[in-house]
């Protein structure tokens, strides 16, 4: 029946649809392609007022460096400006946030899915309210106590804060995944004499991985993409990639140094690119999980 519909579409409608999709793909993809290409040029080419094709062929780049491509921006960002340190900090933060969030989230999400009591519903509503809180309002509550107790500036502080901010979302998502695992599974294990925790450990844990992987991806994205928490709670030495890029902007507006920021931006986007490449299916299913199941 679907092919029937396809055949009966009028040519005008077809053109409109193809045009729309094409415009969208260009709008979504071209900026990234352009910046990736431009990051190997000098500033005079990437920001070329005279002729945008300069950036394509690298006219100024050839004059200034002798080749059509240059890695100067990358060298400047990673070595001169120590972007590698920020990348290292980001990996520490992101891995810790994902592991801790998922550990707490699976336990909590499982309990919420199996409880069936009214207070479980209230907790989910509370989590929804927490999810809506703008992160910066929470940060303005942390800063003063953290300064007072000397907790400010360290990676573990940012990690635990991000775990907490991440919890409402993680709970909702894992809760809806656990609802899809049949109750009989763990209940029959308990009839056989398992305690609730043993049933969880031996029966549920082996089958929960698809949901955990999907939720983990979103925890990863939240921690990786965060600017509010990392920019306000970390000291200069512990900065992660995103605040580091933001600090490039303030300080380096002189010739050549904007390209450091461009190179850093491309470097920070690359892992996300790979992530979508491998986990596209999980990301799509994760985005829709909350919606379709209510």
């Amino acid at each position: 029946m679907m092919s029937d519909i396809v055949h009966r579409r009028s040519p005008v409608l077809n053109i409109i649809i193809w045009g729309l999709v094409l415009v969208w793909i260009v709008a979504a993809g071209f900026p990234f392609l352009w910046t990736l290409w431009g990051s190997f040029k000098v500033q005079g080419d990437f920001f070329s007022k005279a002729d945008w094709t300069n950036a394509v062929y690298g006219v100024r780049t050839q004059i200034e460096t002798g080749g059509a491509f240059t890695g100067k921006g990358y060298y400047g960002a990673w070595v001169t400006k120590e972007f590698w340190l920020a990348a290292l900090n980001t990996s520490i933060v992101v891995v810790s946030v994902v592991i801790i969030s998922l550990t707490l989230g699976t336990l909590g999400g499982y309990a919420l899915a199996r409880s069936g009591k009214k207070y479980a519903f209230y907790l989910l509503m509370l989590a929804l309210v927490f999810r809506a809180m703008p992160h910066i309002t929470l940060v303005s509550g942390y800063l003063l106590p953290f300064f007072e107790w000397n907790l400010w500036g360290h990676l573990p502080t940012a990690i635990i804060v991000m775990v907490a901010i991440n919890q409402p979302f993680t709970l909702w998502m894992l809760h809806s995944f656990f609802l899809n695992i049949p109750k009989d599974l763990d209940e029959s294990a308990m009839v056989d004499g398992c305690t609730r925790f043993q049933a969880f450990r031996h029966v549920i844990v082996p089958v929960m991985w698809p949901g955990v992987v999907t939720t983990g991806l979103f925890s990863f994205l939240l921690a990786y993409n965060d600017f509010t928490v990392t920019a306000t709670l970390l000291s200069q030495a512990n900065q992660t990639m995103v605040p580091k890029i933001a600090s490039f902007l303030g300080t380096t507006q002189t010739e050549g140094n904007v390209m450091f920021a461009v190179a850093a931006v491309v470097s920070a986007t690359a892992p996300l690119f790979v992530l979508i490449l491998f986990f596209q299916r999980q990301i799509v299913s994760g985005l829709t999980a909350g919606a379709v199941k209510g």
Binding site: T103, F130, M133, I165, L171
Partner: peptide
């Protein structure tokens, strides 16, 4: 089961709102 998750949320979401 819910305790660890609840503690982080109360400490780092509810308490900051009070603060």
């Amino acid at each position: 089961f819910i305790l660890p998750s609840l503690i982080t949320m109360l400490l780092f979401i509810a308490l900051p709102i009070v603060s």
